[in-house]
Design a binder for these strands. Structure first.
Lengths: 240, 240
DNA sequence: CGAGGGTTTGAAGTGCATCAAATAGTGTGG
DNA sequence: CCACACTATTTGATGCACTTCAAACCCTCG
């Protein structure tokens, strides 16, 4: 039941049943295989999406074809809702990178409800503020951290921030994509990982990483960041 | 009259006189000299500010003291309002870099009005969406453009996007600060400018730059960007 | 005029990208 | 279950871009 799914989202927590009812009637659930393009940058933005399963990357590319990964969307998150108050074109392209199940929802419905329901507007504001903070941090990292540190920081965001003792991390998707996501080449990522191994004693096997203790890694990565380790300001919970 | 100043802001355009009246009674206008710190990162966020005159930089720093410039605020813009829906701490520090006149306004007043006035909430959403788009672009530039291109892009944003023929650009503040703002060293900035001179034939004298035509520069810089020149998605008008 | 900050220039080093090739890993059909 | 094909990842070698350190230059302002 889509309505119940919607209800679990903080963004919709303050919405009444009527609206959710009507929204779910306009919803469209579909599967999409790897490499399927959901929408292209500059297309008319009619829908936003909830990613129920799989992974989706958001990106832009230059005329020469070089890509900049804007974000990689994890299961359970929304995307494409951001163009709400812009020019009604998607500001980036979206492509499935791990076969996915998606719900598409009309932006127009969200927009009109926001205009009528102040609580939804507030939720939307919170959600955007949260996102903004992350982006902000991302930019800082590009300025202050070198590549191994950025990788370390990425890994730390994948673990429970309060974990004590040994932890196991699974890279959520391709190393190549992680590299792009962090704004570096795959080769650089690979070398960065080995630097981290030497510097922090972490164990790597395929896409599984073991740490005796997060503190080594935290110290290594967070020394070049404005916030110290238990890094509240970063994506730890659901965004929307 | 502060109320009238407030009225000129798109953010407040939909607000009624009562609110603006009460807001301006809580306003505090003051001058601040260069290097004056307005607030520090992580301080309790009680006020947001309108910069009537001068320049203010927003930044964060690591324990070691390296700074990352988040943004440089031009005359007429607001700052500090972004923490509205966060943890009520400023996420960055603010410092005057060109002697300034500021209006401080209580965040609490804005917050409660947003909760009551859906139109204000919508304005706020638009404003955040606009900002988000810029940040987004900024991040892309760090990924795709090299330093001279980034400088060129910065210069292009200072000219009328539809200008034909020769244009004169004045750097709005210190070259050193421009460099930091673009995430590079002053030396790199200086060398980047000479590269641009050679590549596009622009004339530089102190902080004044002359171009016979923007098209050369646009071609040089925008080839490594996902959007082409008359670059709508970037800061050209007032943000808030 | 002289002091001090901003800016440029030079020389050297580092980090990341690029190109090329080897290796590991995965899925396929036989 | 193996061999092959294909892709992801690692490794090596090299080059360029940016930083760093140092010094000169320039400009402004008392």
């Amino acid at each position: 039941m889509i309505k119940n799914t919607l209800k679990t989202y903080p963004l919709f927590s303050e919405c009444d049943d009527n609206f959710l009812e009507s929204l779910s009637r306009q919803a469209n659930v579909f599967d999409a295989p790897k490499n399927k393009v959901i929408f292209l940058s500059q297309e008319d933005a009619n829908n936003f999406y909830i990613l129920q399963k799989g992974w989706v990357k958001l990106f832009r590319e230059t005329l020469e074809g070089t890509q900049a990964i804007i974000d990689v969307i994890p299961q359970g998150h929304m995307f494409g809702e951001s163009c709400l108050f812009e020019d009604d074109k998607y500001p980036f392209s979206a492509e499935v990178i791990e076969s996915a199940t998606l719900i598409s929802l009309p932006i127009s419905a969200l927009k009109s409800e926001i205009e009528q329901n102040p609580k939804l507007a507030i939720s939307m504001l919170s959600s955007m503020a949260r996102y903004r903070k992350q982006q902000d941090k991302e930019l800082e990292h590009r300025t202050l951290q070198n590549t191994p540190q950025r990788i370390g920081c990425f890994l730390l965001r994948l673990v429970d921030q309060n974990a004590k003792g040994p932890v196991t991390i699974h890279l959520p998707y391709d190393k190549t994509l992680v590299a792009m996501r962090l704004g570096m080449q795959p080769e650089t990522f690979s070398r960065g990982i080995s630097t981290l191994k030497k510097a922090t004693g972490m164990q790597v096997k395929g896409s599984t990483i073991q740490l005796d203790d997060v503190s080594n890694l935290a110290e290594y990565s967070c020394s070049a960041c404005s916030s110290e380790f238990p890094c509240k300001s970063l994506k730890t919970t659901q965004n929307f």
